[in-house]
Amino acid sequence: MIDFARKSLLDNPYLPQQCRIVASTPQTDDTMLFRVRLEDDRLAESFSHMPGQFVQVTVMGSGECPISIASSPTRHGFIDLCIRKAGRVTDAFHNLGQNALFGLRGPYGNGYPVEVMEGNSLLIVAGGIGMAPLRSLLWYALDHRSRFKDVILMYGARDQEDFLFKGELLSLQGRDDVKTLLVVEKDPDNSWEGDVGFVTELFDDVDLDPETTYAAICGPPVMYKNVIDKLLDCGFSKGRILMSLERKMKCGIGKCMHCSVGFKYTCIDGPIFTYWDAINMREII
């Protein structure tokens, strides 16, 4: 029998910590990159996470929702949250304003298995808002550059207005230790200097060794399918394809059931799943 009397009941996992917005940078017309910091300095400095993990963000009175962490754990003292206005809580978050307080708990979720991925090449494939959780992994790899072989980033957005972290990603093109391939699907006024097309078309420009590469994908459902087809064509094993999945989450700690898929909970077993996990879970994508 579970000895519940011994379980620590001191830490209430539902209690958010006060957190402050310290900076915000507009990304698209409905998406903003917020830099936030826990109010309690001790907590702010000791906060640590894995790339791919998320936090539960509370706007007092509007509710709580999961937001993936867009900053790398190699950068301490702050957390970046890239938030698109998509509902009650995220809309309210955008209205908070500079310096405002909000609630935060976490980090939650499994995150990318970086200890397994290290020593291999890393292929990051992102579409649209899917760049947010992958930005954490990208900078983790760049800050621990010697731990990875090749690092390749493929990022596609609908158009320039939808392109996240534009300045930051464009500046990566000047680095020779990361291959940065950026595309937009549409460029009506011919102002985009890079390629125009779909992210899947970028596979022609790279030489991948499926035996020693991990591919991390995040983007809209249709992109998953096309990118996974490409990767399988390249000879990737299903266990080397890592996907970040979105589900409704209310608790973030595997209790409320909203994010359940089969016997997995997206919040604690995910949100990072291998493609092998995914095809063994019904209704996953």
């Binding site: 009941l9 996992p13 539902y14 700690i253």
Partner: peptide, 14 residues
């Protein structure tokens, strides 16, 4: 009991 314990303990339940 199993559901509400595990890695995260649901304090309200316990």
């Amino acid at each position: 009991d199993r559901v509400f314990s595990g890695k995260y303990v649901d304090t309200y339940y316990f």
